[in-house]
Design a protein around this nucleic acid. Structure first.
Lengths: 210, 210
DNA sequence: TAGATTGTTAATCGATTAACAATC
DNA sequence: TAGATTGTTAATCGATTAACAATC
């Protein structure tokens, strides 16, 4: 299985949705599913389902369909295989606390290894079982522990200031809640942007104008 | 100006980013900008900038470029014109608190008018200056106050259970943090999904496999 | 007028959908 | 074998990019 030479971003972004629907089916005891059944449930087309799965080598059997457990295994492997990604949180405000709670309690494949803030008020405090460190210690921490992912819950200016350091220290992935456009300034890193402001603005536009 | 018959979703989703960059330029005293300058700053192409702006009638002057203040005005009008959207929050856990804080303090164009939860522990408490109400009162509240937007910070099962009621009560826009796929089950409503789980999974895939 | 840069049409590119041969 | 459904190739669709005439 698995040829996955350059799978396109739209396909990758659909993987979690497949994972959600197939997990559900598995929980509900569904054993076998066809591309058209899955497509109907998910609101997409059978063609797309088959094209997507075939990006990773194809998980089905001609004439039969897909075994739910095989599908779940394959997609889980794609999404979660290997070591947990050591992750640091930067910014322990309200949003940082909610997000790190989610990451440690509900997400799979990540391990929160440190949290940083610049405020005296936060440093020394506790978050997800970790002691909040002064962000000025971030460089020495990264040199020693080599985290792979950074979660940015800080304002745009701070993110802009910190980004070159983090990239130089070998951070490969950013879960970016700041409004700074990381992807514009760096290549060779992976960024998932969660721009709450952008999201609200486009929602507003559509509610008002559609 | 403004012809905007059916502007495509990719264009709409780019509006907030234009807004951010143009706001910045305005703050920094930039008076005039060409499509190629703006494109370079934003990491896109001059063609796309001009195509995008022309979806809304075109904001520039041939031979000259775009006036930053005109651009900012036009895009602000598109994004924020008219009444603030009356908005309700459902789910006042950690995430709900962070998100409603963002909506009331940092976002434009929205007005949080009520917050609901189902937990005894939350009901009667305070959030963003509002008293948290029992979610069982949501129907009568909506009949009286006609909110336009609902922010869903509740688990998937609750969202699934509540959605038909909310849609029937006339909610037009959903800012959906639950993992329930609203868009699959309803049309005629506008949904902005913030699927944190999906976001983390696709980040993980890319960090591991790229 | 000449240079610059838009607005807009045309070409390209990529993603989605349809079709069908392979095969269980 | 016949029916079903995949894997995969071909056609379509839409979005992005390029080109160029309009015009400031």
């Amino acid at each position: 299985m698995a040829v996955q030479n350059k799978v396109s971003l739209p396909v990758i972004k659909r993987l979690p949705k497949y994972y959600r629907y197939i997990s559900d089916m598995h929980k509900n005891g569904v054993v076998k599913v066809s591309s058209s059944e899955l497509a109907k449930a998910m609101g997409t087309t059978a063609s797309q389902v088959r094209q997507d799965f075939n990006c990773f080598g194809g998980f089905g059997q001609q004439g039969i369909g897909y075994h739910v457990d095989v599908l779940l295994d394959e997609i889980s492997t794609l999404l979660f295989s290997g070591e947990k990604l050591p992750t640091i949180l930067i910014g322990t405000g309200k949003l940082g606390r909610a997000i790190s709670g989610f990451l440690t309690k509900e997400a799979r494949g990540y391990s929160l290894v440190a949290a940083f803030d610049k405020s005296e008020h936060e440093i020394g405090g506790e978050i997800c079982g970790l002691t909040i460190q002064d962000v000025s210690h971030i460089e020495s921490f990264c040199r020693e522990h080599h985290p792979a992912v950074a979660v940015l819950c800080i304002p745009r200016s701070s993110a802009h200031a910190l980004a070159p350091t983090l990239v130089a220290l070998g951070i490969k992935g950013f879960w970016n809640f700041s409004h700074y456009d990381l992807s514009a300034d760096y290549s060779d890193i992976t960024v998932e942007n969660v721009h709450l402001g952008d999201s609200l603005m486009s929602l507003g536009y559509r509610v008002r104008n559609e």
